[in-house]
């Protein structure tokens, strides 16, 4: 059998990856997001920029709930011992979801714009809200990635999707006033809040990336992976290894 390079693997893997994604669940979250974004247009609501920002945030949260299913892989264990590494497989999944997600986000902004008057749309900071949406989806990926890395679960999506809406609520309730994440456009805290959002995006993507590689050493005490014993063998073990493996 000829072994080709990574590019050839990626090319061959793209189609089955697209086929293997849980599109119904992803699309469910995204469709709900578009419906939420279309509410002002559907009901001819004349909302101010602050309310429009909250509509966009609600749509972003729906999208993040859909993204929580991106790493669901019912065949995880059947394909658990293949040479193509997990980071490559996950990256390809996330890239495909990311591309589709970008189209979805454009649809969300388009739906909001259709229902907003020119003045409100003009002061709505779409770029900063896009960073918020990306951070929420990044959070979903980080949680799903951690679930895959630290447990044997095949479908982390349902648990992550269930937990995700609670996190922005908790942030709104527990974060101090000066570090609030959900601030209206034009608020003096806007710049600081979006520095924080950018930080969340960077950290969540870093966590997802760090959870990708399969471990060479077990994590002490990690859920479902036990731990709590010394990593190196005693003299008896080392002698046995030397004897048997030469």
């Amino acid at each position: 059998m000829r072994v080709r390079g990574r590019a050839a693997v990626v090319a061959a893997l793209t189609r089955p990856t697209v086929r293997s994604l849980p599109w119904r669940l992803l699309a469910g979250g995204w469709a709900l997001g578009v419906v939420v974004a279309a509410v002002p247009a559907l009901f001819s609501l004349d909302l101010p920029a602050a309310a429009l920002a909250d509509v966009v945030r609600a749509a972003a949260l729906c999208g993040a709930v859909g993204t929580a299913f991106a790493l669901d892989d019912p065949a995880r264990h059947t394909t658990g011992a293949v040479p193509v590494p997990r980071p490559l497989r996950q990256t390809l999944r996330v890239a495909v979801v990311g591309l589709a997600g970008a189209v979805w986000w454009a649809a969300v902004l388009g739906a909001v714009r259709a229902g907003a008057d020119a003045a409100s749309w003009g002061v709505l900071p779409a770029g900063a809200l896009t960073v918020e949406a990306a951070a929420l989806s990044g959070l979903a990926l980080a949680l799903a990635g951690a679930a895959v890395r630290f447990s044997a679960v095949r479908l982390p999506g349902p648990a992550v999707a269930a937990a995700l809406p609670a996190l922005p609520v908790a942030a709104a309730v527990f974060l101090p006033y000066e570090h609030a994440l959900f601030v209206p456009p034009g608020d003096p805290r806007w710049a600081d809040a979006h520095t924080l959002w950018a930080g969340i995006l960077a950290v969540t993507l870093a966590v997802w990336a760090a959870c990708g590689p399969e471990p060479r050493r077990r994590v002490r005490g990690a859920p479902g992976r036990g731990g709590g014993v010394p990593k190196r063998g005693g003299g008896r073990t080392r002698r046995a290894i030397a004897r048997n493996l030469g």
């Binding site: 019912p74 264990h77 293949v82």
Partner: peptide
């Protein structure tokens, strides 16, 4: 594995073909 999982919408051929890609058979 003990409880093998599959992508249920794949055909038998598609699934085995997918595993073949994961085993680096790219041609």
């Amino acid at each position: 594995p003990q409880n093998p999982g599959f992508h249920p919408d794949f055909t038998a051929f598609e699934f085995v073909d997918y595993v073949a890609v994961l085993k680096e058979l790219t041609d």
